[in-house]
């Protein structure tokens, strides 16, 4: 009898050891908020620089966002990005931490890191991009920054997890392209077949599908929506003066391709974002319909939210006012 149970007792001992070690690593992660991330982060692209920037935000306005914050069209005379324009307008230093395809999950991780590290910006501005709550951004495996996000708060365990390729839950490219796109009650089909990624000059129905899949799917089940609410509550609890702003989307071009009913779903998503922010008591600015199509800098067939300098300037005027009010509160 003893012989038959021997392998299982051995297995349990190994499991107990692994559990004990995991607990030890978790304890180290939890009790040392300041030291580990920067050193560990050097092994991931972007992260060391981001951490350094976050740490430099003490006492300064901090902007968290995606590529909308740092891009400018190549052929523009004024190639300053939005944050640089705003810094000029406010005559102050602004710390920007932004990367392409970032979403609310990343901003939440960054703010958690800030608070644990004891860094306190004078104000925090968080860009809310409606597209990032939809499946084209949230389920895109190339834009999944789950590991990066975890590294902000659990560097040791997250790194071990990454080394062991414990990355379940992130869809692969095939699953992503097979994502079913549903607008209201209507099932349109799989994302890949609808949007034909890689097709540079697609017909209008494909462009329409691209608008629909990026902006019109129901975002109420998005995990990033929960992250938005969590971030709003976190900053409120920490009494960190925070402004959320919904970035402009190209409504004018969108209306050329979508029916009134379909556009209604886009508006509903904006209302959802506003409702979440309102319910959590957050300060927010809705710039989603601020700009005409000419202020956007995207190809006709590839809609996104990058702005031309004219658009950036209009945003900056709105943001400058709001940030000044926010700084006044701080």
């Amino acid at each position: 009898m003893q012989g038959r149970t021997l392998p299982y007792r051995f297995g349990l001992r190994v499991l107990a050891f692994v559990a004990a070690l995991t607990a030890l690593f978790a304890l180290v992660d939890r009790t040392t908020p300041r030291w580990p991330p920067i050193w560990l982060a050097r092994l991931l692209p972007e992260l060391p620089e981001d951490l350094a920037r976050l740490r430099s935000a003490d006492g300064k306005p901090l902007f968290l966002g995606d590529s909308v914050l740092h891009t400018a069209a190549m052929n523009e005379p004024d190639r300053r990005n939005l944050v640089r324009m705003l810094a000029k307008e406010l005559e102050t230093d602004i710390v920007r931490v932004s990367h392409g395809a970032s979403g609310m999950d990343r901003y939440l991780a960054q703010v958690r890191y800030l608070l644990r590290a004891g860094v306190r910006p004078s104000s925090l501005v968080v860009l809310v991009n409606p597209r990032t709550f939809g499946p084209t951004a949230e389920r895109n495996p190339s834009w999944s920054f789950a590991l990066t996000n975890r590294m902000y708060t659990r560097p040791l365990l997250s790194r071990l997890q990454a080394v062991l390729k414990w990355d379940f839950g992130i869809p692969d490219e095939d699953e992503f392209l097979a994502t079913e796109i549903r607008i209201g009650e209507t099932v349109l089909g799989p994302l890949g077949a609808l949007t034909r990624p890689g097709l540079e000059d697609p017909p209008d129905d494909v462009i329409r599908n691209r608008y629909l899949s990026r902006y019109a799917t129901d975002i109420r089940t998005s995990s990033r929506l929960r992250d938005l609410a969590a971030l709003a509550r976190l900053t409120a609890d920490a009494e960190l003066p925070t402004l959320f702003y919904i970035t402009p989307i190209d409504v004018q071009s969108m209306k050329q391709f979508l029916s009134a009913e379909e556009f209604g779903h886009v508006q509903q998503n904006i209302r959802t974002l506003r409702a979440v922010l309102r319910d959590t008591g957050a300060t927010f600015l809705d710039l989603s319909t601020l700009l005409p199509g000419g202020d956007f800098d995207h190809p006709r067939a590839d809609p996104h939210e990058h702005l031309r300098s004219t658009g950036r300037l209009k945003c900056v005027r709105k943001l400058a006012e709001a940030v000044q009010q926010l700084e006044g509160q701080g």
């Binding site: 070690l21 030890l24 092994l43 040791l156 790194r159 071990l160 062991l164």
Partner: peptide
Amino acid sequence: YATALLALALFGQVQT
């Protein structure tokens, strides 16, 4: 064992 796992976490390559 703990040191080995720590080395895995700290120095292991994330890229597959």
